[in-house]
Structure formats: C-alpha cells, structure tokens
Design a protein around this nucleic acid. Structure first.
Ligand SMILES: [Mn+2]
Ligand SMILES: [Mn+2]
Ligand SMILES: [Mn+2]
Ligand SMILES: [Mn+2]
Lengths: 141, 141
DNA sequence: TACGTTATGTAGCCTTAGCTACACTTTGAC
DNA sequence: GTCAAAGTGTAGCTAAGGCTACATAACGTA
C-alpha cells in the first residue's frame, strides 16, 4: 500500500512546494493591490494591512519586497502602484484565484469555505492542474 | 463583477492561510517520519533531509521544532519517533493527502502533477472542503 | 582492531515575515 | 489657519527556515 516515492522524486515535490510558498505572499499582495487600485483608485499601505490582517509596519516591509521584486512602485505618502510586470502577474493570479474558487464551489464546497481555502490553495496549483480544473468546469456546464 | 469582500472577512481568510502555513511544515515532517518508520523501521535525520531536499542541518533544526510541538521524540544518534499526538496527526495528514491526490486524479490531473500539487494544497484544505471532496469521489465511483 | 566513510550535532550567517514603539507627515474639521 | 486624527516611515525585536562549515560519533570493512 503506502509505497514511498524515490528520494529524488519526493525531494523535487517538496522543493516545488517550498518555492510556491516563497512567491505566495507576493502574489497575494499584487492581487490585492490590483483590486484596491481598481475599486478605490488607490492602494494605501494601511488599507493593504487591514485587508491582510497584519500591522501596517509588516505591510510596509512586504511592499518593499514587492518593489524589490520589480512588481510595484511607490513613493512616500503616495500609495502603491503596479509595474507592467506586476499587472501581468495580478491578471494571472486573479484568473487562477477565480478558477480555484469556481472549482471548489462546483464540487459542493460552501462559498465561504471555498473562498477561504482558495486563498491558500491557489498558490500550489500548477498550470497543468489549472487546465484540468478548467476542463472539468467546462465539461460540467 | 470583482466586488471586494469586507476588510474583516478578507483579513480572516488571509489569517487562516497564514496559520495553515505555519503548521504545513510540521505536518509534512510528521507524515514523512511516520512513512519512514513504517517502511524502514527508523527515521534518521539524514534520510528525512534527503527526502525533503534540504540540508541535514535544516532538517535537524526543524525536527527540534517538531519535538518542541510535542509531536516527536529523539535521542542523539537514535533516530526520531512520534508521540501519541504525533501519530494521530500523521494519520489525519496521510488520509487528507491521499484524498487530495485522489480528487485531483479524478479531475483528470496527471499523476505526477497531482502528487506534486497535493503536497502544497493539502495544508490548505479545511474539514468542510475535505468532506466535499470525499462526497464527490463517492458519488462518482 | 584500525581507519575511512557516513551520520550527527552545533555554531553562525542570511532572509522572510510577523510584532510593538515611536517619530514625522498629511488630511480634514472647525 | 489650526490642530487633532489618521496615515506613514523606521527602528528594533522575535521566530522560522534556509544555508555552510566544522567537529564529533558510529559504522562497516579490511
Ligand atoms: Mn492567496
Ligand atoms: Mn487570492
Ligand atoms: Mn505537504
Ligand atoms: Mn503530504
């Protein structure tokens, strides 16, 4: 029954998970910044912090990391904006987020659980798996 | 269309994701230790490190955290063992891992992608969602 | 039994991601 | 225009989770 994969295979899988992990927060910030820009016209550090449920100091530090990654720009007291690359990432992430939520809902997961779980799951869904999700949703419509 | 949830709701969702995050590694260690104990009779730090794809020093430090969490015990040069609580967690985690992989496969995700993605996804699947997965698999069998 | 190989433990370093505390800037109400 | 409230920036702390380097212990084979 519980046969173990080879060391190399298992190490590769865990490695992928770690790398997904390290980009997860960047993805959430970029997605949130895009949402705020669209819905409020601006993305202020305090709003970002409140929506994430962290202190504003934490948000500011992470925004600095997002800037370092070339995904956003910001000038003191002027809010945060996305670079071209940041906008592209936000688009991809938003589509993926929605697809994951839709899939969970299609499987009968209650809406709030779907939204909450998707916030974590989305960062670990590969392109391959995403395609399978889309295919499944299409076939069942 | 893309209407934002309230600040509180969104903060709660992100908070859940962060908390899932902080237990993810503990879950993977406990699951792996259980697998090694079962398949090899012992769980040595070096084997754990190799399977996770990290240095042995990293594994040793994380094992210390697993011990601090009351999930495992270990004595110098004697390998790692699970406590009662650790075994209980390992059982739950193994079942969940299996279920997530099975669901992905049922949706048409290729085996290796399913295994790789599940390694990250599993930690963000709530009990509610897990039940929906089980229900779906049962209904389609 | 001796000795080279492998495993283990430990120290020290880095980055990320959280926090509180405090000082400074902007904004808005009067 | 003043001034309090709200927002912002920054410093300094902690813990987690990576790494390398090095010293010691255990093991297996000649
Ligand atoms: Mn997310
Ligand atoms: Mn998201
Ligand atoms: Mn895992
Ligand atoms: Mn797992």
């Amino acid at each position: 029954m519980g046969k173990l994969p080879t060391e190399g295979t298992q190490a590769r899988r865990f490695g992928k998970t770690r790398s997904a992990q390290s980009t997860a927060l960047l993805e959430d910030y970029v997605e949130l910044i895009a949402d705020l820009l669209l819905s409020a016209g601006e993305a202020r550090p305090t709003d970002i912090a409140r929506r994430l449920g962290v202190s504003h100091a934490t948000a500011v530090k992470t925004i600095a990391r997002v800037k370092r990654a070339g995904l956003a720009t910001a000038r003191p007291y002027r809010g945060v904006f996305l670079t071209e690359e940041g906008r592209a990432l936000a688009d991809r992430v938003r589509v993926r987020h929605r697809l994951v939520v839709d899939l969970l809902c299609a499987l009968g997961v209650p809406t709030e659980a779907a939204e909450a779980d998707a916030e974590g799951i989305e960062h670990h869904v590969s392109e391959t798996t995403l395609k399978a999700f889309a295919q499944f949703l299409k076939s069942r419509r």
